[in-house]
């Protein structure tokens, strides 16, 4: 049962990855791509790690640290990239 649940989490994460990374190739603005990347890289990766956590609960401490640092760093990097790219002159 838990095995199936962990697979579902990992597969959802990979679907998020693909959905959020494919817009990178098109020519939209940096900010629009940043929105879809935050879906892919933050939320998708979080759900993959939760899937791994269900698989190997004995290493919960390391995986929990991974989730926390992933959420904080990716969000802060998104803000820094948005700030720098919007006030650096060229927007697209």
């Amino acid at each position: 049962m838990i095995e199936i649940l962990s697979y579902i989490c990992i597969v959802i994460g990979i679907i998020f990855w693909f959905w959020g990374t494919l817009p990178l190739i098109g020519n939209r603005s940096v900010l629009f791509k940043l929105h879809s990347l935050s879906v892919a890289d933050t939320l998708g990766s979080m759900s993959i790690i939760i899937g791994l956590l269900l698989k190997i609960p004995s290493e919960w401490s390391l995986l929990l640290l991974a989730i926390i640092s992933l959420a904080i760093w990716n969000t802060v990097l998104g803000y820094v990239l948005a700030y720098c790219s919007s006030s650096g002159g060229n927007n697209d």
Partner: peptide, 16 residues
């Protein structure tokens, strides 16, 4: 060739 699009791609590579 745009540098910000490259930066986005690199950030994505690092996490993945």
């Amino acid at each position: 060739d745009n540098i910000w699009q490259k930066m986005l791609a690199f950030a994505s590579i690092a996490t993945k």
